[in-house]
Nucleic acid binder design. Structure first.
Lengths: 147, 147
DNA sequence: TTTTATCTTGAGAATAAGTTTCAAATTAAA
DNA sequence: TTTAATTTGAAACTTATTCTCAAGATAAAA
């Protein structure tokens, strides 16, 4: 059994546990998302589904995403121009985004130390963390050299 | 001369340098923002101005904020429900924001350990960090208990 | 299988933050 | 002043996301 079907099975269990109903639309959306290897937004995801003949509505995409976030399969990684971008949570490691204020370039690293640190801090505050962003705004090496 | 009038003077210089015109609206908005001791959003700031009799428009508030960000007096700290929140840039210490997705409450802590850690990571990437924010979206203790 | 209660769906309307438009007002240099 | 350029307020516009609701799907129970 592949990783995808494993996740699909778990998602079904998750949906049931919440007293919700497992639908083909929810499964379709999850499967399409699992194929994405990069950041995605609702519009792009919806387009991809439509192109392959899916009849799923944009409203359903919007409704399914919070479930997938809650289940831990995806997470919001950043917002840009009032649009949210998500990615598949392969591991639970948060990304650090280095955003250069000059060239607008985004560099991304994964930081294992941060995971534990955030879990610890959240515990101190009695928070249940679902997703988190760390953005560092600054100047990249290249722009620094160019003055 | 107080800190505020010092900043106002600098802002005027900044505006002039950009070839723009220094207006009473821009000064009014800056002064009101400098009074804020917490996060603020455009709507709240606009309300405060109106309550004290200001005739400034919301459009002008929206137009002035990017200038103040560029000048370095304020920074965006997080976005929630497609609304941006800002704060006065007093020090460069990063805050950790715990944002409850249910009650919308924001809890803030300052984490000195994180400062060093980020400096280290930035150095590895040859980045010159200017400011950074860590936002943790989740569910607070109170909302968790309430189900 | 049929019933029944509940949930979900699609389509489009509604919402709301932020942007844009434009004529009138303001700025500031000459 | 005069004049050219910028800014303003008000309202229209844009657009991501949410909401509404009737019709359809799900699943537990009969």
């Amino acid at each position: 059994m592949g990783v995808t079907s494993e996740i699909v099975k778990d998602f079904k269990k998750f949906i049931k546990k919440k007293g919700l109903k497992y639908t083909s639309e929810r499964e379709e959306i999850l499967k399409e998302i699992l194929k994405s290897k990069q950041h995605f937004d609702v519009d792009g995801l919806y387009m991809k589904l439509r192109k392959k003949g899916s009849k799923v509505s944009k409203a359903s995409v919007y409704r399914t995403i919070p479930l997938l976030v809650e289940a831990g399969y995806i997470q919001e990684v950043y917002k840009q121009d009032s649009r949210s971008y998500y990615e598949v949570t392969l591991d639970k490691l948060p990304h650090i985004h280095f955003i250069c204020i000059k060239c607008k370039g985004v560099d991304e690293i994964i930081d294992e130390y941060l995971v534990e640190h955030i879990q610890k801090k959240a515990k101190e505050k009695k928070y249940t963390p679902l997703t988190y962003h760390l953005e560092i705004f600054g100047i990249c090496h290249k722009c620094k050299e160019e003055g």
